[in-house]
Design a protein around this nucleic acid. Structure first.
Lengths: 158, 158
DNA sequence: AGTGAAATAGTCCGAGT
DNA sequence: ACTCGGACTATTTCACT
């Protein structure tokens, strides 16, 4: 991955609807060249898609939580992600190192809805759960700077 | 929030670059009407922006982790989010209930970069950290179904 | 809030370097 | 891999219902 591609990715990560015309202006390339690069980045899977960022309070899902899960039978086949995929409230599922197997991020309408969801998670995946309720979100969906060719990576913001 | 608006929000959450023409077809409205609704949803803050979904492996940040932080001085002013905002690697910051104060989601290039980042977090915000490394991510950025006017909310996927 | 139409702007592809 | 140019499609605004 090269400088201009990284720039395109960063720009689109910050504004997913930016036009090719604007991208061309920002990168100093022609519109066609940018178009070609974006299509290639999409095909290579570097750009995995585009999403609107939604205010969940506004759409009736004001309660966010992280749910850590652990199989009740430690020998069980670890297909928890598949078993939970049908639950719309589960926004993300990460396999993690540590005492628990997965961390889920969930969005629900209310404490009662959370209780029901936890019951569904437990029965669907045969797991125990530990829930951390989110009180507020100072920021989210920021875009980490791509790392250079070296593995060091800039942790400081430009 | 009404049925058609919820539909527009869901469609754009799933494909942030969907054209007004396509949105019009999906909702049965005219292009102008959809346009007007989208602009209103943006102004009301229901649609907070648009983002490209990036494959972090491809841009040199293959290591994701959740970092829970706790102030060393429990009486300290709780400005940790501000003190950490300059760290590009910090993708999200959630204030949470429980033993720790915040959960951060971070993306780094390597274990060494993670170590350096944790040091920066500790000194910048005067906190202790507890880190959970993400091994893999079965899914992420899914779009929970908006809840109806009732607070119940559908946890099952359509 | 909605429609339709017209002007502007962006997307996309082919040919050429 | 990039540029240019042209055909096509989408966005945006406005007058009207």
């Amino acid at each position: 991955m090269e400088e201009i591609d990284r720039r395109i990715v960063t720009l689109l990560a910050r504004d997913g609807r930016m036009s090719f015309t604007d991208l061309a202006r920002e990168t100093g390339l022609s519109v066609s060249a940018v178009h070609q690069r974006v299509r290639r980045l999409e095909k290579r899977g570097v750009l995995r898609g585009y999403a609107a960022l939604v205010d969940y309070d506004s759409i009736g899902l004001p309660l966010t939580a992280f749910v850590s899960i652990k199989p009740i039978d430690p020998a069980a086949a670890d297909d928890a992600p598949d078993r939970l995929a049908h639950l719309s409230a589960v926004e993300a599922c990460h396999s993690v190192a540590g005492d628990e197997s997965y961390i889920l991020k969930v969005r629900v309408a209310s404490p009662i809805a959370l209780e029901e969801l936890l019951n569904q998670i437990r029965t669907a995946a045969n797991v125990s759960t530990r829930t951390t309720v989110v009180l507020s979100t100072p920021y989210e969906h920021r875009t980490p700077e791509p790392a250079g060719e070296d593995g060091g990576g800039p942790e400081e913001r430009a």
